[in-house]
């Protein structure tokens, strides 16, 4: 199963990067989401995956007595998921605002380098 997840991560990264390289702003945003999902899964997988043993201590015990899933990547990913919502919201509003200003979804319309700045 791990091998399949590795392939999935590779696919998420590849498609995420591909979308980032598009000129359309919306595609850029979707690429960001895909890349974020890939990174979350990567962290999750590197913490080793375990079935049917959530990191919750048994109600009778004081600490783990059996095999359990690693809580650290889970805590990391949980914050990452929530933060990514903030990021997406900000990015989407930013794109929206840019769209209103330049009336185009094409990133190339956004910035042609201004000669006088150089």
């Amino acid at each position: 199963m791990e091998l399949l997840l590795v392939i999935l991560i590779g696919v998420l990264y590849a498609t995420g990067i591909f979308m980032l390289l598009r000129r359309s702003m919306v595609k850029l945003l979707i690429g960001l989401i895909l890349l974020g999902n890939g990174a979350n899964l990567l962290i999750f997988l590197l913490g080793r995956i375990t079935k049917g043993a959530p990191p919750v201590i048994d109600s009778a015990a004081k600490f783990f007595t059996d095999v359990y899933a690693d809580p650290i990547p889970q805590a990391l990913i949980l914050t990452a998921i929530v933060i990514s919502f903030g990021l997406q919201a900000f990015a989407i509003v930013l794109l929206k605002r840019v769209y209103v200003l330049i009336n185009s979804d094409d990133l190339d319309d956004l910035n042609t380098p201004e000669e006088e700045d150089i």
């Binding site: 959530p54 919750v56 109600s59 949980l78 914050t79 929530v82």
Partner: peptide
């Protein structure tokens, strides 16, 4: 604090 859940999920 004892079972799956918490402030983040609850808030969401």
């Amino acid at each position: 604090h004892y079972f799956p859940g918490g402030g983040f999920v609850g808030g969401l």
